[in-house]
Design a protein around this nucleic acid. Sequence first.
DNA 1: TTTGCAACCGACCGGTAGGTCGGTTAGAAT
DNA 2: ATTCTAACCGACCTACCGGTCGGTTGCAAA
Lengths: 194, 194
Amino acid sequence: MRDAELTRQKILEVAADEIHKQGFTATSLSCILKRTGVSKGALYHHFDNKLELGYAVFEEVYTPQFLEAWRPAVEVEDPISGLIAFFSSYCQQADLDDLMCGCPLNNLCQEMSSVDEGFRVRILSLQQQLNTLIASNLDRVSDKLRDGVDTSQAAYFMVASFHGANNLAKSSRNTELFEKVIAELCSYIKSLST
Amino acid sequence: MRDAELTRQKILEVAADEIHKQGFTATSLSCILKRTGVSKGALYHHFDNKLELGYAVFEEVYTPQFLEAWRPAVEVEDPISGLIAFFSSYCQQADLDDLMCGCPLNNLCQEMSSVDEGFRVRILSLQQQLNTLIASNLDRVSDKLRDGVDTSQAAYFMVASFHGANNLAKSSRNTELFEKVIAELCSYIKSLST
DNA sequence: TTTGCAACCGACCGGTAGGTCGGTTAGAAT
DNA sequence: ATTCTAACCGACCTACCGGTCGGTTGCAAA
C-alpha cells in the first residue's frame, strides 16, 4: 500500500506543531493539508473529524513527550535538586520563540478544558499522571523533606507555578522575567528539603 | 440624542462578559448584538472593529476591575496576611462556574498575547501595574520580611502561581484541588515573613 | 488476470464570521 | 419650521471554516 502509517504520522506531526503554535480552534485543516501535502480525503480517512485528530495529537504526541521530559528530573537520587536542575536548564535553553508558544498542555488546558469534555478528561489525566510521577518520587526521599510537606499538593503547586511562569513570559516577551519567576520557584523547592 | 453613552456601555458590559466566558476569538459580534439588542450599525458606529472593541473592554472594564480587586489585599497594615486573606476568601467564594471561566487577564494572556501585539502590550502593562502595587506594599514592610527577599520577583511569582492554580482548577473541575494549590501558595507567602 | 478494498482525491456544501454601506431617524441648533 | 448630523439600522458581501461524497488508484490476495 501507499504507506498509510507514514501519512498518519505526518498529519499527526504537523497538527501537533500547528496546535502548539496556533491553538486548537485557530488551527485550520487546510493549513495542515498544505504543509503535509496530504489531501482532505486522506485526512478524513485517518481521522473522523477535527476533534478526533486533536485527541490523537494529545494522546500520541503531547502525552509521551511531556512525561518523558519530566521523568528524568525526578527519577534521580535527589528529586529536589533534579527538579531545580530541570527548571534551570529549561530557562537556559528556551529562547523567545519557545516561550511565546508556551507549553502545549498549559495552552490546551486554558483553551479547551472548559469547551470540550473529551479534551478536559485527557488533560486532567495527564496532569494526574504527572502529579503522581513527581509526588511518588518526593515520597521516596521523604526523610530528607521538611516535616508536614504534602508531596502531592507541593507537586501540583510546582507545575501550576511553572505554567504561570510560562504565561507571564508569553506576555512580557522577556526571558529575564521568566528566569526570575523560575528562580523564585527553585527557592521554594529548596525550602521543601531540610 | 438617543443616549449614545448608554449604548456604548451596554456593548462594553456584554462584550466583557462574553469575552470572559468564551474568549476573544470565539466571541461573535452577532451574539453581542443579540444580547444587547443593539444593531450592527450601532456597534460599528462606536467601535472601529472587533479588535478595538476588545481593547476597550480590556482598558475600561478588566483593568480597573482587576486592580481594584487586588488593591485592598495589599493596602493594609500587613500585606502578608492581607494577601493570604485575599486568596483564602477567593477560594471560599468561588464556585465551580467562576473557576471554569477563569481570570480574564489570565485567559487573554494565554489566548491573545502571542497573536496580537495590541493585546500583548495592554496585558503586560496591567501585569506591571499589579506587580508594582504588590511589590511596593511589600517593600513598605520590608523590615518584617526575611532577608534577601526580592519583592518584585516574589510578587510575580505569586500572581503566576495564582494563575496556574486557576488553570488547574479549570481542567480538574475540582475546587478542592484548587484550594490545595492555594494553600501551598499561602504557605509560601507566610515563609516570606520572619 | 481479475477482483476487492484500503487509501486517497478534490470539487462542492451549508453555515458563520467580521465587515460594509446606503438609507433612516431623532433631536439640537439656528 | 428648517436644517444638519450623530446615532442607528439591517441587508448584503466576501472569506473561510469543517465536513461530505462520488470517483479514482494502487496493491495484494485469489
